[in-house]
Computed example of a mutant assay.
Amino acid sequence: MRSARRVGEVAARNHLPDLLMRRRLTALLLACLALPLPAAADAVTVFAAASLKEALDRVSADWEAESGHDVTVSYAGSSALARQIARGAPADLLLSASPEWMDLLEAEGLLVPGTRRDLLGNRLVLIAPAPAAPVPLGPDLDLPALLGPDGRLAMALVDAVPAGQYGKAALLSLGLWEEVAPRVAQVDNVRAALALVALGEAPLGIVYATDAAAEPAVAVVAEFPPESHPPIVYPVARIAGGAANPAADAFLAHLAGDAAQEAFRAHGFAPLPG
């Protein structure tokens, strides 16, 4: 009996290294399976102005289906996106609603030389909750009266976000800014200003024509004269500093192609000649 027990102990000791090795390999395999998969090398990350959402979502989806590459788009105000890129946020492309923020990044050497181009144009409009009658936009317009005793004029940040900057410039040009400035509700981006009007939280707002077209709960009551503000231009460029990404280069070229330009036009943007 003792002899048999000793034989069993010896056999167990002989199999112990194999057992431990199998357990270690199993643990290693499970640990590897738990690790997140690396991002695809041919994925494209785009930072884009909030006003581009519907149009760029369509353009991106069409290109994904055609090319097989993934496109991830982060939407926000152009100023916020430019600051994120300046702080090192990983982006392949920036599509801004203002040349000013692209100029700042270019001055810092954060754009790939030769990739910047003016892609799109837009228009600036005054909106109200739908339905609403047109108003005579001009120096004689009594904006405070239209806002009512407690109403606010919804605008993107007037000193930072392009839609707010264009809107302030237009109101200054028409001589309407000083009287309405205390009644302005400033928000982070143009889509937030659109939402305030769409929800009835503000009786009037200043947004792009493309934003108004995307929201059935608002009506355009006036369009600002193009000469009342700087031209609304959307530049696009490749961001420097990251690894080479041929898919990002291909998507940049696609944005200027006929199919993408037609999609932008269908959403109310004005494609610009390259």
Results as ranks from 00 to 15, higher is better:
15 H>K: 10
104 L>I: 11
123 R>P: 00
52 L>Q: 11
14 N>Q: 14
106 E>T: 13
67 S>R: 00
210 T>W: 10
201 E>S: 15
60 S>L: 05
100 E>R: 13
258 D>K: 09
24 R>K: 08
166 Y>Q: 10
165 Q>S: 06
67 S>I: 02
107 A>E: 12
165 Q>V: 15
8 G>V: 14
30 L>S: 04
28 L>C: 14
23 R>L: 15
237 A>I: 06
208 Y>K: 00
87 R>N: 11
274 G>F: 15
35 L>A: 14
2 R>I: 14
47 F>Q: 07
184 V>F: 10
102 M>C: 04
62 D>C: 03
164 G>V: 03
139 P>W: 13
81 L>M: 09
181 A>W: 06
12 A>M: 10
217 A>V: 02
4 A>H: 15
169 A>H: 05
130 A>R: 05
63 W>A: 12
192 A>G: 10
153 L>H: 08
214 A>E: 10
194 L>I: 07
84 Q>W: 13
33 L>Y: 06
16 L>N: 01
238 R>C: 03
119 L>I: 03
55 A>G: 12
273 P>Q: 09
194 L>F: 02
77 G>M: 06
77 G>Q: 08
50 A>G: 02
184 V>I: 11
164 G>H: 02
272 L>G: 10
104 L>P: 01
177 W>N: 07
233 V>Y: 07
83 R>Y: 05
108 E>K: 11
260 A>M: 04
47 F>Y: 14
30 L>I: 09
174 L>T: 04
178 E>Y: 06
99 P>M: 09
269 F>L: 04
261 Q>D: 04
113 P>Y: 12
81 L>S: 08
80 A>W: 05
268 G>T: 05
157 L>D: 09
209 A>Y: 09
50 A>D: 10
210 T>N: 09
269 F>S: 08
10 V>N: 00
40 A>H: 13
70 D>M: 08
259 A>T: 15
57 D>V: 00
265 R>L: 13
228 S>Q: 02
31 A>N: 02
188 D>H: 05
5 R>H: 11
247 A>I: 00
62 D>H: 12
147 L>F: 13
99 P>L: 09
25 L>Y: 07
195 A>C: 03
254 H>F: 12
215 E>S: 03
183 R>G: 01
69 H>C: 12
95 L>K: 05
187 V>Y: 00
15 H>T: 15
155 M>G: 12
6 R>D: 13
103 D>I: 06
155 M>D: 12
159 D>E: 13
116 R>T: 01
145 A>Y: 09
182 P>W: 05
156 A>G: 14
116 R>S: 07
102 M>A: 15
144 P>I: 11
103 D>S: 10
22 R>A: 14
112 V>N: 01
170 A>T: 03
152 R>C: 07
86 A>S: 13
76 A>M: 06
58 R>G: 10
79 S>E: 11
103 D>Q: 08
164 G>P: 05
186 Q>V: 03
167 G>P: 02
155 M>H: 04
187 V>Q: 05
158 V>M: 11
133 A>K: 10
109 G>D: 11
240 A>Q: 10
48 A>Q: 05
214 A>M: 05
103 D>A: 10
65 A>I: 01
206 I>P: 10
